[in-house]
Design a protein around this nucleic acid. Structure first.
Lengths: 224, 224
DNA sequence: CGGCAGGATTACAATTCTGTAAGATTCTTG
DNA sequence: CAAGAATCTTACAGAATTGTAATCCTGCCG
């Protein structure tokens, strides 16, 4: 499960909270001050940080800044009052959420879950009909079978699926696929690539459902 | 600037809020009910939705679910009371934040800014030394020059850069690159691929800086 | 209907990719 | 230092990719 770093100098609160979070299935590391907190942060790379704003050895904002300067790990502030200035300042500095004492345990764990969900952001898989493309693995599947695409075919499909629903002109496609490397390609080369891609991804390449041609304008990937 | 969709059936609140948000530089569309809200959502694809929980024609949760089923657009709930059950239910259903009435305008706009910041997440470009990999374009650059990788080389590099700093075993590499398609490859094939990849991405392939080998265990991409 | 433009299709060499084999290195252990 | 294991390097054929050219099809216009 997830590792949570709790930075809080009130030992009573710290222990209660720690126990509760463990009972929820989290692994918890606690720190009582700024310096210790940052050190444990570096060592353990937690999935989420709970940070008391009012620490004895300096306020929590600087800790948050320090964390943000090196990582995107979500930070939830624990505040004594729901003071607006604090809240705003906290968000400005990059906190992901805040909760003011006294807080209900269930609310805290809902916020933690929420922040973790956002952060371990679901892999953005692009979908269209029975086709999926996972940019994080460079993997294309159709009906749960891998589709083998060449480098250019993959880029072509990626371009369409990340702009699905939008019309993409032939010029733009040529630009995106070839001009970075400064090459120039023949006029109908793109036609050939479209055909090759369609042969691999469409159920019926003669009646393309995933990428349709818009005569005179370009191509368009259908949404969903 | 950003487009905000406000779904709220109390006209007084709706107008006040709308004015305020416009004064903050947002473009605002308003809807007074569930159906209208979803319709405008489809038409305008807003950057953020402010959603009153208690709508006359059904509660806000179902609207949120409907939005979530087709998009990742952030949703902030407006609640009449800070009732915990509401909060939890809202988070469970995929709300990004909530705020209870009466709320201070500054707090609301801080939350909106926060939610937008998280959501328009900067394109995640993977970096290592003088090398960058952009998964959204399947583009690898070294010293601002494009590096041409084959499909497998690209996947191999992607695997390393998205787990930089971590040791990756040879078995895991073989799994990630080949077993999805159910193939089995020879024992030293991976060595050959590593050599080919290094020849393309390393300044000095004999002294690899980007991907180092950890004898007996696997390989490891250095961070940053 | 005839002509034409945009696009689809097929075919074909040059190049690159892919997997394996064979041998050379390098590191570790005794 | 010698032996063995792990990794690197080179080399090589079969397969796939890449770009172009030639040809075919299809919707649109007068």
């Amino acid at each position: 499960m997830s590792l949570i770093l709790l930075i809080e100098d009130d030992t009573a609160i710290s222990e209660t909270l720690s126990e509760y979070l463990k009972s929820e299935g989290y692994t918890v590391r606690t720190a009582s001050g700024q310096k210790e907190g940052l050190q444990i942060f570096q060592e353990t790379a937690p999935d989420c940080v709970l940070l008391d704003i009012s620490l004895a050895d300096g306020n929590g904002f600087s800790v948050c800044s320090a964390i943000r300067s090196t990582s995107e790990t979500p930070v939830i502030f624990l505040t004594a009052s729901a003071d607006e200035a604090c809240t705003v300042a906290g968000f400005e500095i990059g906190a992901d959420d805040y909760i003011s004492k006294p807080f209900r345990p269930r609310e805290l764990s809902a916020r933690i879950r929420n922040v973790l969900r956002r952060h371990t952001s679901a892999p953005k898989i692009l979908r269209c009909h029975n086709l999926t493309l996972d940019p994080a693995k460079a993997l294309v599947m159709k009906n749960n079978q891998e589709v083998f695409l060449s480098a250019l075919e993959y880029r072509l499909l990626l371009l369409f699926l990340s702009n699905s629903g939008q019309l993409i002109s032939r010029d733009r496609i040529a630009d995106e696929l070839w001009t970075i490397s400064g090459e120039f390609i023949g006029d109908n080369t793109l036609n050939v690539y479209m055909k090759r891609l369609r042969d691999k991804i469409e159920d019926d390449p003669q009646n393309p459902q995933i990428i349709r041609t818009v005569r005179g304008l370009g191509y368009k990937a259908s949404e969903s």
